[in-house]
Amino acid sequence: MHSDTVQQLIIGAIVLVSALHVLRRLLPKWMHARQQWLAALLDRPQRPAALRALGRWLRPGEQAGGGCGSGCNTCSTCESNPEADGKTDKAETDIKPLKFHRHVRADR
C-alpha cells in the first residue's frame, strides 16, 4: 500500500512538471504572468522566511520583447539570430536552391 502511494506521487510530479513545461513553451506570456503572481503572493512581509525565499527564487527574470528580431530565438524561426551572427556553418554555405525542370515527353 505504501509503495502505491509513492508511485502515484512520483507519477503525479512527472505529469505536473511536463504540463508546466508544455504551458511554458506554448503560452509563455500567460505562464510569465502566473509565475509573477505566485512569486508576489509568496514574497510578502507577513510570510515565513522560507516562503519569502521561495517567492524570490520563483520571481521571473526580465523578458525580451518577443517577435522576430528581439533576440529571444526560443522558436528558432527568426532569421536574425544574434547568437549566430558572424558564425557561418559549412552546411549553411553549401545550401543550393532546388531547380525544377519541366519534363516533356517525346511521344506526344
Rank of each mutant, 00 (worst) to 15 (best):
L9D: 07
A53K: 11
V22P: 06
R105V: 12
R56P: 00
L27C: 06
H101A: 11
H2S: 13
A64T: 04
R56K: 11
G86Q: 02
L41T: 05
C68F: 03
D89H: 10
P48S: 13
L23D: 09
A49F: 07
L23P: 06
V104Q: 11
W30H: 09
K96N: 12
S18W: 06
V15R: 14
F100G: 09
S80R: 05
S80E: 05
G86E: 03
K87D: 00
G12A: 09
H21R: 14
L20I: 15
R59V: 05
K90W: 10
P45G: 02
A91P: 03
K29E: 08
C72I: 00
S76K: 04
W57D: 06
D4Y: 07
R44M: 05
T93H: 04
K96M: 14
P97D: 15
T93E: 09
L20Q: 15
R108A: 13
Q36D: 15
R34I: 13
T5Y: 09
L26W: 07
A64F: 02
Q36R: 15
A50C: 08
R44F: 01
A91H: 07
R52D: 03
C78K: 01
A91K: 13
E92C: 07
L58I: 04
G65L: 05
I95C: 11
R105M: 13
C72A: 02
R102E: 11
S3Q: 10
A106M: 07
A64D: 01
L41E: 03
C75T: 04
I14D: 06
N73I: 05
N81I: 01
M1L: 11
H2Q: 13
V17R: 14
Q46L: 14
S18M: 11
L38V: 07
H101M: 08
S80W: 02
K96S: 14
T5W: 07
L27A: 09
P82Q: 03
A53M: 11
H103K: 08
N81T: 02
V6P: 00
C78T: 03
R25Y: 10
R59T: 12
